[in-house]
Design a protein around this nucleic acid. Structure first.
Lengths: 138, 138
DNA sequence: TATAAAACCTATAAAAAAGATAGGGTAATT
DNA sequence: AATTACCCTATCTTTTTTATAGGTTTTATA
């Protein structure tokens, strides 16, 4: 399951996507819309900004706005950013690889082989579905 | 990512699958092979037994053994048993459904719609890959 | 230029979940 | 009868997640 952080990130991105006509959106608008703590959401939006998905403007009249085209924001990117690895095991993660301590030889591990296949099929979905798909269905 | 519990379950099932020629396998054999705490593994094997995947025999000469054909043990079954939902959001889980508290109307939620698609594609993989696939690669 | 509004930053606390351990009870086999 | 190993429950520890707190910087505008 996704963490709340990631789920909230998707909600926020959806909200920002739906309000691309206006220059900026306040954290508070989003936090009220979904009943998310202002401060908690703040951290999430900051991460999305650092990742280059959102832009922001400080001061009065400021707020956040989407700088990427929704079709260029794959689900995989948001999940990796807030939740970490998409792979089901550390030993098959592309971005967060770690060997399994209990595994003597990864090359001979059948679980490893199968999980690589699972990872690739999951990635195929999560890299091709984007924020645009979410917005299309709203 | 899968929990250690689920990963250990897959290891144990693999071990049992590889030793189907012998009547029973001791918990200790598995825990030593993978360096898993005996007691921790005990709980895992118990759950697998309750789920009808393993059988056991008490007393001297006892132990665990696989009662299902490996090709009839899909990854999804093991994951659901030890880790819970496969879906990325509670509101799209088939086996562990819960509404999202922040969601006013699930029917109008684009995130919900997309995550249903993601779930179906993930399930397609996890229900078709089985213990047999792991054993084949060992 | 003062003020208010808003994002930005860092640290920490609280809660929940995962991981691990303990100790015994019960049943079956030799 | 003793041994062996499954079975069960409870508790403790650690890690992760979730949430909060308090201050700093930037910007618009009156």
């Amino acid at each position: 399951m996704l963490s709340k952080k990631t789920k909230y990130a998707f909600h926020a991105l959806t909200y920002l996507g739906k309000h691309r006509d206006q220059k900026t959106v306040l954290i508070q608008d989003i936090s009220e819309e979904y009943g998310i703590s202002h401060k908690f959401l703040e951290n999430i939006l900051l991460e999305l900004k650092k990742a280059g998905i959102l832009g922001s403007k400080k001061g009065k009249g400021g707020g956040y706005y989407l700088i990427k085209d929704p079709k260029d924001v794959p689900l995989s990117k948001v999940i990796r950013l807030l939740d970490g690895p998409i792979a089901l095991l550390p030993c098959v993660s592309l971005n967060y690889y770690e060997p399994c301590v209990e595994c003597k030889d990864e090359v001979k591990c059948g679980l490893n082989k199968v999980m690589i296949q699972v990872r690739d099929e999951m990635l195929n979905v999560l890299e091709n579905k984007t924020l645009a798909d979410i917005l299309d269905k709203e």
